[in-house]
Write a protein that binds this DNA or RNA. Structure first.
Lengths: 241, 241
DNA sequence: TTCCATACTGACCGATCGGTCAGTACTATT
DNA sequence: AATAGTACTGACCGATCGGTCAGTATGGAA
């Protein structure tokens, strides 16, 4: 699968350098195609055609198909990571912060659907070694921050102390990513009505997660009804804004 | 991508029929290869070689590469679905039932790693129409049952009545599937110590989910049901606000 | 003007892909 | 013995794949 690795003499496309406009066009087209059709199903001729250049020119900018793919992944992850971080600002409570994070994260996933699928695919198919690279170079920052927020919530007494912060962080990501992944299937279950309403989903899921990690779930007077098992029938309790 | 659809005259490999031993061998090999390397990266010659037959013989048993793939998916899902259902038996409490389900489901995912990845991949890449097929023909039964269990828990007063049963069911699947998917990345985060301990993970995650959906999370005298919290800190201790 | 690196091209390469086909070997029925 | 249907094969096909190469156009530094 890996081609003969010529030592890249006179090859301009190094990892960090800025690309010429032609190279950037190629990269953009490739990102779209890889995301939409996957690695194997995307041909270099197709990329070239899409970018309006010759195939040989694509190989002029990128050493090989694989390197082009890596470059696409790199860029995609950079964007995705940056988008995640900016969800931090809002909210006084940690619960609110995480709530905002959930919403923003899912919104990002859905808005950048193709790239998201690309990244998720990369995570799923990653070998143990490849996983290490991804963990260290791509996801560490964002995930660390999430964990830090959870810890903050624990120290302030807002969250239970007996749970693993990383676990909650993982479950938060999990909630969104799996929703993103399974939408197309989920939508067709008759008893599922949130598949096409990400905002409602995120609210409900957040509610479910939080009342599992809040220190005092019984003390929530606002909705007032979480309490006692002896209560017969509760009128449909909505999670309101 | 789809080849010319010849109307399958004299072609023995119909969907429901039992396969000859040769055909089954081909299918088994194909399942392994598709799961390991994906659709495109698996060649029919490879399948043939692996099964110890000629390539022409593979095409004798299966109309096309795509049909072979579908057959593999069908079988994989059948197994997976059956494995899910048998987790039902145990547990008097609904909480215990779901707990057992979580453990059994994740165990199945991990034990049949390749096939699981195949199915997950199929879900993720499914088009809206393909998703409908999957929902109706593959996952409906298992998912319905999960939802039914949750509903049961609500009616018995064990679970909050104000949450969507399908949402909890979805989150349960989500928890396991995303763990399964992200293991190779997760493992490399320094503050994550559950990535290689699925049983512990499932216990912790279950605890988190349940205390979010139990009606009376404050009245947790029953420490035996969910299992012991792994961290030696006080559970559910209301620290000050 | 000369020089040289870079952007770019069309034609081409060997390999491999999914799939076909004519033909053989092996039954089981008539 | 003849027939018929199935399992199976090797040789082959056109298409497409990733990648190469010789060569041209361009533009800035000498």
């Amino acid at each position: 699968m890996t081609p003969t690795q010529t030592p890249d003499i006179t090859h301009p496309a190094r990892s960090e350098e800025r690309l010429s406009s032609g190279g950037q066009a190629v990269l953009d087209v490739a990102a779209g195609l890889f995301a939409e059709k996957g690695y194997d199903a995307t041909s270099m001729s197709e990329v070239a055609r899409g970018a309006g250049v010759s195939k040989a020119n694509v190989f002029h900018h990128f050493r090989s198909k694989h390197q082009l793919y890596l470059e696409v992944i790199r860029e995609a992850c950079r964007d995705s990571s940056a988008a995640l971080r900016q969800g931090r600002v809002s909210g006084s409570t940690v619960t609110e912060q995480l709530s905002a994070f959930l919403a923003h994260h899912l919104d990002t996933l859905l808005r950048r659907e193709q790239v998201s699928r690309l990244v998720v695919r990369e995570v799923m198919e990653s070998s143990p070694e490849g996983g290490k690279e991804l963990a260290e170079q791509v996801f560490f920052e964002g995930f660390s921050e999430l964990v830090a927020i959870v810890r903050e919530g624990q120290e302030s007494g807002e969250f239970r102390r007996d749970l693993d912060p990383a676990l909650l962080a993982h479950l938060i990501i999990s909630t969104n990513v799996f929703f993103f992944q399974s939408r197309n299937v989920l939508r067709h279950f008759p008893f599922v009505d949130f598949a096409d309403d990400p905002r409602r989903f995120v609210k409900m899921a957040g509610d479910l997660l939080f009342h599992g990690c809040l220190t005092a779930p019984s003390a929530e007077a606002s909705s007032g009804t979480v309490g006692h098992p002896s209560l017969p029938v509760n009128p449909q309790e909505k999670v309101h804004d």
